[in-house]
């Protein structure tokens, strides 16, 4: 092979340029952003719930990135204001998601803060929404003869609960719900925060 040195240098230079433009510069841009004012870091229990969220594959069907009003009706759906980069300051890695088989969960803690609802819905989504196609996570719960002290007993509406005994949430379910309840990015976005303005047109 001729000119192996210049070829390797050129290949490395192209790689370095791509890394610089696609990784280093955006990384510096994003890391310069402080967390959105009012955004809370996750607690230990919420972080455990976040692990459960990852391991259950929630991210395959649920995004965490409301879009701006010129890209979709996410605001009218109640999913919250358009996401900004600093909303994910405490998320590593981020759980933006790409699919929306289910609703966006960026602000699920703001619009559904109810633990009992979440537990019933995780055990059997059809008990709340008859048409839901979400899988039932009933293995995060156990049926007991009677509840021990400290157990979180779950009531399932529409008679879809177990026929005998009481339904108790396992710690994974409680952690997961704590994580979902913590998802609240409804605080005001600073005017100069980093975000996607791809379609902004000056009409006003």
């Amino acid at each position: 092979m001729n000119r192996i040195l210049p070829l390797s240098i050129l290949a490395l230079a192209i790689l370095a340029l791509a890394t610089l433009m696609l990784v280093v510069v955006p990384g510096m841009q994003i890391n310069a952003q402080p967390a959105t004012p009012g955004l809370q870091p996750y607690t230990a229990i919420q972080l455990r719930g976040r692990q459960t969220y990852v391991s259950m594959g929630c991210v395959y069907c649920h995004s965490q990135q409301p879009r701006s009003t010129d890209q979709g009706p996410d605001g009218e759906r109640g999913w919250g204001r358009p996401a900004i980069a600093s909303d994910y300051a405490y998320d590593s890695p981020h759980l933006l998601g790409t699919m929306r088989t289910g609703p966006d969960l960026s602000n699920i803690g703001a619009r559904l803060p109810n633990q009992a609802w979440h537990l019933a819905h995780l055990y059997q989504p059809r008990s709340v929404s008859a048409w839901s196609i979400m899988p039932a996570y009933s293995f995060l719960f156990e049926v007991k003869e009677r509840a021990a002290p400290g157990d979180v007993v779950v009531r399932i509406p529409n008679g879809r609960g177990p026929k005998h005994g009481v339904l108790v949430a396992k710690p994974e379910a409680i952690d997961l719900v704590a994580y979902l309840q913590s998802l609240d990015r409804t605080m005001v976005a600073p005017a100069h925060a980093e975000r996607d303005d791809g379609y902004a047109k000056s009409e006003r």
Binding site: A191, H192, R195, D197, Y199, A200, K201, S202, R204
Partner: peptide, 9 residues
Amino acid sequence: SVMIGRSER
């Protein structure tokens, strides 16, 4: 677009 978005906000 970024400039316009920022100034409008």
